[in-house]
């Protein structure tokens, strides 16, 4: 039962590995960016999960409630999401440039064009 209780973390692990695998295994530059996104998103879920307190309420002060979820990781992840969006934009902009310059976004075709250098 303990294993099921860590449900969120299993999702994180599976997403993380899936994303990382895509980054490594895919030769398509856009798919690599998608993989990076999944990889980063898993970390966001990880942070949000660790903030949750069983039975904890939203961190708004109300009389009679003594347990709150930790709001700090949520704030951190807001920042990290912004960083992630900037990275995705940067990555996709580079892919557009690559497509203009090489006429392809497949890694092996690009390396073929550049020769062994």
């Amino acid at each position: 039962m303990d294993w099921l209780g860590l449900y969120n973390y299993w999702v994180v692990v599976i997403l993380m590995m899936a994303g990382f695998y895509i980054v490594i295994a895919q030769g398509n530059l856009v798919k690599k960016i998608v993989g990076l996104n999944i990889f980063q998103t898993s970390v966001f879920i990880f942070f949000i999960s660790l903030a949750k307190l069983d039975g904890g309420s939203a961190p708004v002060y109300v009389e009679g409630i003594t347990e709150y979820s930790n709001p700090l990781p949520h704030v951190l992840i807001l920042t990290a999401i912004v960083v992630g969006v900037a990275l995705t934009a940067m990555g996709l902009a580079l892919v557009v440039r690559v497509h203009e310059l090489y006429g392809s976004i497949e890694e092996d075709e690009i390396h073929e064009q550049d020769g062994s250098d």
């Binding site: 990382f20 990076l36 990555g91």
Partner: peptide, 16 residues
């Protein structure tokens, strides 16, 4: 033009 690919490669590894 290889600069763009170099930058992309750096982006992937740097982000990881």
């Amino acid at each position: 033009r290889r600069a763009v690919m170099a930058s992309y490669q750096y982006l992937v590894m740097g982000t990881v």
